[in-house]
Simulated scan of single mutants.
Amino acid sequence: MSNDGFWEVIGDQLHELESASSAADVVGILSHERNPYGSGTTGGDGFFAGSGGDDTVQDALRTAGWEYEWYDARYHFCMRAPDGSLITYVEGDIYLGNSRAPKNG
């Protein structure tokens, strides 16, 4: 895939995320099958390959009405969809639900 084709896929995904209303929508948009690097590159439920670009998953989801459940860093956060479902973002990997490890003590 050319570099231009890669960023076109990422742009399309970000545009689709701007209207995602559930965690299932996000996983569908960022599914393994739509990963421009190939389907075997992540252990999450989905993967965003464009984390080095200017636009972000969190900005797209905020446009769609999502809110933070918690936020540690731009590469590690959990967001709540308008329907109440959750995704956790860890360095491009997308996990359904709140995958934050509980704190001890």
Rank of each mutant, 00 (worst) to 15 (best):
E67L: 05
E67Y: 04
L61E: 04
P36C: 09
D72K: 04
F77P: 02
V26N: 08
P82M: 09
R74I: 07
S85V: 03
Q58P: 00
A24Y: 01
E69M: 06
N98T: 09
S51Y: 14
T63A: 14
L86Q: 07
E91T: 11
G50S: 10
F48N: 02
A49E: 11
D93P: 02
W66P: 02
E69W: 01
I29Q: 03
Y37C: 01
G53E: 08
D72V: 10
D55C: 01
Y37I: 00
G84I: 08
G50K: 12
M79P: 04
N35R: 05
G44F: 14
V90G: 00
Y95K: 08
M79W: 10
T56V: 00
A81W: 09
G92H: 12
G28N: 15
Y37N: 08
Y75P: 00
A64K: 10
G43S: 10
T42M: 00
Y75A: 14
L61T: 11
D72F: 02
N98M: 13
N35P: 05
E33T: 11
G50L: 14
I87P: 02
G65I: 11
G97V: 07
L61G: 06
Y89S: 04
D45A: 07
L30M: 07
C78P: 09
I29C: 02
S85H: 05
Y71C: 06
Q58F: 13
R34G: 02
L96N: 03
G65H: 09
D59N: 15
W70S: 14
P82D: 07
I29F: 01
H32C: 05
Y89F: 15
W66N: 01
D72P: 00
W66C: 06
H76E: 14
S39R: 13
G28C: 01
A60H: 11
A81C: 08
G44P: 13
G40H: 14
T88P: 02
E91F: 12
